[in-house]
Design a protein around this nucleic acid. Structure first.
Length: 591
RNA sequence: GUCCCCAUAGUUUAACGGAUAAAACAGUGGUUUCCUAAACCGUAGAUCGAGGUUCGAUUCCUCGUGGGGACGCCA
């Protein structure tokens, strides 16, 4: 029986009301004098002063047709059948405003009042899989703050896409086959160190060795040649070097895993560059056969004559010494993902400085796959801005002291723990730690996700670790307060509050109104692959909740009022928790 | 030299060509006998410059200024 009810509700109250209104206008507009099928209503969330949604489309349409927009809008308005769910009005030069009824707002929340209902409604049925390529640190080095963006943004996009119903494959494309190994192997052999006895912090030890090797080859030509030889031996499959390389990889992965575990990041694959080392030969062969690449100064390169810059700027797929480079492995990786995983779409989450590389890669891939008669997946470079040092230049790994990612995360937890202790004097240390991890790590993630990813920012402890204002703890606090109310009343969040009356007071209406914009935030974050749209929405929702919390008591005698307010609290909690989960941020029942 | 990104309040940011540019932090003034004050409510404060397109420009175009980046064997 409740299932039937649900179906009826869902017919009347779609998840995305904005889309419903858009369809609604599209359905009637062609019958109105002066309109046709080309008319796009352009329904947007409206400023509260004007209503809940606004259709802007009449203005540009009238301009094209050379008619008076206000009159045109009025005609359209006259033809729209009236609905008990909303009121329409004409405003300004030709905006059509929609004001939803309180009953409709209530109905929406009743229809989508559990996490399961929201999740199901948000999912689209989309075939094919999406590969998200992110994090991708180099082995033999520690992850430093420079790696935080790809890891956090990538994970949150993967979660968002999965939430939208896509089949997502997370792949950590490790830099595990680069030239750094020649230098490292040289240093290991020179120092006669055993990789089984590197002490408590083996990855740091490896990094020291790498630094040592680096300074050796810089000072001594002969050492540089030796390092090259070690690399060649490794690439030729020398068993000693291969064994060392594998151990280095294991040590690195172990240290990465620790960080991924803290951050709640899990990969389906970690197919690094080494995985493709035997797959690059066929790339050259195929590119040559299809005359996509050519020899130039001994190297194999691809030019794109149709492109203003890449007509002259080469994409080097094989170095003049015959070795492969990252362009080669990226091509081989693309072929593999297309063939083995039937990737429909591939998303690369990397620093914006690699934009030329990916543009060239994508151009080359399209030509190559077309020639091979295979489908080219939709390719997206989701780039982000650089983290800068105090000198306004990218934070460097080599010079200066790069800030280790693990240190940043631990400091976040430490600061959060101090806060938790301050607020809860008697709390056992174990629980302090548990909460501090959720709060501190949440704060770090949110700090990075809440601004447009394409922006650069200067690294600052205080920026990444802030616990006040527009931060994760603010959102988590709102969630905790809801739990507290339900605890005090002995009620459950997943109850059906069917007795709830429609929202009446200002605070009730504003909060109920905020809920219906969740689908829009999801949609925009998804469309542009930018999590900050979701962050902005969640913060506004939390603000609306806090305001409501301050103005209205939930513990009131009138049961219809109490049910409504419980429903509003539960819904705020649901959406906040669901949204934060997509961002990779956990919530707490008590703070 | 070619190309790309960025410029919004004291600071850090938001605004899918739409209505009076939105927040946070820092200022400043207030709110706890009341469901967690990690909160709430006031207040002050901004679109780099010059043109252009448009009914309408922070958003698009041109030029300039300032900052950052990419451009052949690193990833």
């Amino acid at each position: 029986m409740p299932l039937n009810m649900l179906e009826v509700h869902q017919m009347d109250t779609p998840f995305d009301i904005c889309n419903q209104l858009d369809q609604f206008i599209r359905q009637y507009a062609p019958q109105v004098d002066g309109f046709n099928e080309d008319f796009a209503p352009q329904v947007r969330a409206a400023d509260e002063r004007f209503g809940d949604f606004q259709a802007n489309g009449v203005l540009p349409f009238a301009k094209k047709a050379g008619t008076n927009p206000r009159e045109l809008a009025q005609r359209l308005l006259d033809h729209l059948p009236s609905s008990e769910n909303w009121q329409t009005s004409l405003a300004g030069p030709g905006f059509i405003n929609f004001k939803l009824s309180p009953e409709y707002l209530l109905q929406w929340t009743l229809t989508y009042s559990t996490k399961a209902e929201i999740t199901e409604a948000a999912a689209e049925n989309t075939p094919g899989s999406i590969v998200v390529d992110f994090s991708s640190p180099n082995t033999a080095k520690q992850m430093h703050v420079g790696h935080i963006r790809s890891t956090i943004i990538g994970e949150s996009l993967a979660r968002l896409l999965a939430f939208r119903g896509h089949s997502v494959i997370r792949d950590n494309h490790l830099g595990d086959w680069g030239t750094q190994f020649g230098i490292l192997l040289l240093a290991i052999k020179q120092e006669e160190v055993s990789l089984d006895a590197l002490g408590d912090d083996p990855i740091a030890r490896l990094e020291d060795l790498y630094r040592l090797g680096n300074s050796m080859v810089k000072e001594d030509e002969a050492k540089l040649e030796q390092a090259r030889q070690e690399l060649v031996k490794l690439q030729d499959g020398d068993s000693e070097n291969l064994a060392l390389w594998e151990k280095i990889r294991d040590i690195s992965m172990f240290s990465f895993e620790r960080i991924y575990q803290m951050l709640g990041v899990q990969f389906d694959h970690a197919l690094g560059e080494s995985f493709y080392r035997d797959k690059v030969a066929s790339v050259y062969e195929s590119l040559l056969r299809h005359q996509i690449c050519q020899e130039d100064d001994g190297a194999l390169v691809v030019f794109h004559p149709e492109h203003k810059r890449f007509a002259k700027q080469p994409f080097i797929v094989r170095k003049s010494d015959g070795a492969s480079n990252y362009a080669t492995t990226d091509l081989a990786t693309l072929a593999y993902r297309q063939q083995e995983w039937q990737a429909q779409q591939i998303i690369y989450v990397t620093d914006g400085r690699q934009r030329d590389h990916f543009e060239q890669l994508f151009l080359t891939t399209r030509k190559w796959f077309d020639a091979e008669n295979r489908p080219t997946p939709q390719l997206e470079h989701v780039w982000f801005g650089t983290i800068l040092g105090p000198d306004n230049k990218a934070i460097k790994t080599r010079d200066g002291q790069p800030i280790k990612l693990i240190d940043l995360l631990n400091e976040a937890i430490r600061r959060a723990a101090a806060m938790v202790r301050e607020k809860n004097a008697e709390l056992p240390e174990e629980e302090v730690t548990r909460r501090a991890e959720i709060i501190g790590l949440g704060a770090v993630k949110y700090a990075d996700l809440s601004q447009d990813r394409t922006l650069d920012y200067v690294f600052s402890w205080d920026k990444l670790l802030a616990l006040q204002g527009n931060t994760a703890p603010y959102l988590q606090y709102a969630v905790a307060r809801v739990h507290s109310i339900f605890r005090k009343l002995g009620r459950r969040l997943d109850e059906r509050f069917e007795n709830a009356r429609a929202p009446q007071t200002d605070a009730e209406c504003k909060l109920a109104r905020k809920f219906i914009f969740f689908p829009l935030a999801l949609d925009q974050a998804n469309r542009e692959l930018k999590p900050h749209f979701l962050c902005t929405y969640l913060f506004e929702l939390a603000t609306e909740f806090s305001s409501f919390y301050n103005q209205e008591k939930v513990m009131v005698d009138d049961s219809e009022t109490q049910d409504l307010r419980l429903l509003l609290c539960a819904q705020a909690q649901n959406i906040l928790q669901t949204g934060l989960h997509i961002l990779g941020i956990e919530t707490l029942e008590e703070m």
